[in-house]
Write a protein that binds this DNA or RNA. Sequence first.
RNA 1: GCCGGUGUGGCGGAAUUGGCAGACGCAAGGGACUUAAAAUCCCUCGGAGUAACAUCCGUGCCGGUUCGAGCCCGGCCACCGGCACCA
Length: 799
Amino acid sequence: MEYNFKTIEPKWQTRWEKAKIFEAVDFSEKPKFYALVEFPYPSGAGMHVGHIKAYSGLEVVSRKRRMQGYNVLFPIGFDAFGLPAENYAIKTNTHPRIVTDNNIKHFSEQLKSVGYSFDWSRVVDTTDEDYYKWTQWIFLKLFEKGLAYRDKTFVNYCPSCKVVLSNEDSQGGKCDICHSDVIQKEKEVWYLKITEYADKLLEGLEEVDFPENVRIQEENWIGKSKGAFVKFLLDGAEETLEIYTTRPDTLFGVTFMVMAPEHPLIDKYKDRITNMDAVEAYRAECQKKSEFERVNLVKDKTGVKLEGLSAINPVNGKKIPIFIADYVMMGYGTGAIMAVPGHDQRDYDFAKAFGIEIIEVIKGGDLTKEAYAGDGEMVNSGFLNGLMKKSESIDKMVAWLEEKGIGRAGVQYKMKDWAFNRQRYWGEPIPIVHCPVCGMVGVPYDELPLRLPPVENFQPGEDGESPLAKIDSFVNCVCPKCGGPAKRETDTMPQWAGSSWYFLRYTDPHNDKAFADPEKLKYWMNVDWYNGGMEHVTRHMIYSRFWHHFLYDLGVVPTFEPYKKRTAQGLILGPDGQKMSKSRGNVVDPLDVVSEFGADTLRTYVLFMGDYGASSPWNDASMRGCKRFLDRVARLADRLAEAGDPKLESPLHKAIKKVTSDIEEMKFNTAIATLMALLNDFEASGSVGREQYVTFLKLLCPIAPHLCEEIWESLGKEGFISVAAWPEYDEAKTVDRTVEISVQVNGKPREVLSIAVDADEAEASALGQALPKIAGLIAGKKIVKTIYRAGKILNFVVK
RNA sequence: GCCGGUGUGGCGGAAUUGGCAGACGCAAGGGACUUAAAAUCCCUCGGAGUAACAUCCGUGCCGGUUCGAGCCCGGCCACCGGCACCA
């Protein structure tokens, strides 16, 4: 058979689309399987090989499950709001709507050319008014429940993009989009109270099937710690200074306190602080420090003592000094700490630099650790002396603090509330009206979607003002509550909004009465298997789980957790082993591969490269090897025998078993290797039966479907192999009656013995000793022990 | 610094979870077919050693457990990813 992928690939893609064989059926009697891949941002650059690897995994699983009789939902869509389209629009003076539509069209054609079995009738586009209507609806619900609020705080601000960034978007102090240094800026911004769901986000992790490293990364990001809040009385004032600590039991070792430079108490007591000049100078210095300096010069402790203000250590009444220093952050805990230089490296460094007393309160408490977290005997600690376990000493101290009314047990999270607005045009408008009388009022539900107005100029304003603020007809409105003149919110939502619930919309993408029909949600949710990149663990995964938990509390989704199982594919590196990037010039364009070698070869190769979860470099020669494999498969179609070689039955049934389980475990590389080995056996036999060959094709079909369809048709088979029944294996045929086992002497493999799998030890031992080579090695020696594992090894220990 | 991961031929990678290390593919070398090339087919292919066997060495490094270790334990080294003055 001639395998001309250039003609057969488009041919089958068209036939699949016409026959609608990949469309999911709501409420089907078949068992449902919802496979989800992270929908792409439709960039102008088009598809990347990374997309191919990311989608090919669940593509193969979905195709196999369909053949196994599942009702599969395998959807695709576009996460199309965001800066690149807007920046391109600014540069070319084209409306982002047009840019986005073109990109989606282009991207869809590319995806189709790879032959993915997506259900194209359910495509979602986050920038579609019918979609973002419901994103706004969810926002209003969050607002109603007090989970969306405005606050004036220091925010991460990118001076280049002129936008406020969330913590997740400014990891490492760099803007996630343009990689310039992020600065701290005081601004009034929107927040979503994700911290209120911190415990639920942690609990949910216990019921889902996530890889261990993903779970741990999410847990670390949420960063829950247990400790206590303690109030220290200021000397000679009614005021207290509250701190958070994870080790309240070290209170006897506290010899000073530190406040963050921005702490509000400083201004309140500026009349009592006698060195306010020095304090102000230090504060100015801190604000000037770039993120680079803060990250790289962290080990040098700096600070200023507050003269004229001191605190009282509540456990011993001692007067202790208060400092301000930038190693204490305003954004965590209370913005102030009790310093225990005896057992905390940072406090120790500071105490050394400023000549402060150091008291040991835990015997052997190791100062090489940043904050000592272990057990140890309490000393110099009054009523805690002699206690050995930190849990006991902490409990006792917390009880004492609570009794005195100066402290309480508490928890803290590293995760902060989600900064939820951008000063950009191409995003969902936040559906809020600012009324001088009524305050903030939600746009009525029946007025959704609140559409983006047409604008001439997409440039953000100076000082971080949204382009929407310049559109008077948009800004000026009537308060929905009192009817008086009011102004609209002009910020838009961040890109993560639309992707936080898109998997729900797939279950009912054209509904205009609800974001999805409850019955359809009940049928399809939750997502059985979600595959995507590791880079989304701390953002998209946490955000979307948060929204889903919230919708669950509203009673509008049927499951607590959205995703039952999560997996992550590894990167495809450039041929040089480096991360692919335009600047390195090592980017491989998947469309070039499709046009030169075909989609089937591309699909086979990205899965054959190595462990699906690991990164591995692209290699053109290896890819050609996959083409060679498919060519050999095609050629075999012309050399079939009527009666198949019975010797091929065992390797065939072993292959069915292996490929069936390997696909479920995402071990695509070994599944393909198994098929290659089976093809080798077929060719060596020279007498491959038609049905044996068809079985092989079915196993290969999820990976290289175009070729398999073409051969299926050429063999005169009806319908599509893509929806033919998946082969079953006969367990008896997968088990060998006789096996070759290693015969060892003193643990060294010396010979190979062909023996019945179920032979007993006496028989194996006799046969083993009878082997000439083994007989020679044990001659004149005494067998002190014989180890036999049926079907595995035989080992003689001799002296 | 903390958390997670990885380390196997010339290369990408296998190894039923403690049982013949190197499946499968690539590259390389040799041969067949061809006027020639491409394509295809056959053979070799971890290192030392041998005419060929035999034998020895070999899974980042050092040590341990075991009849037996790529896999388990202890201690290092290197690289990758994430977090990072989080009290």
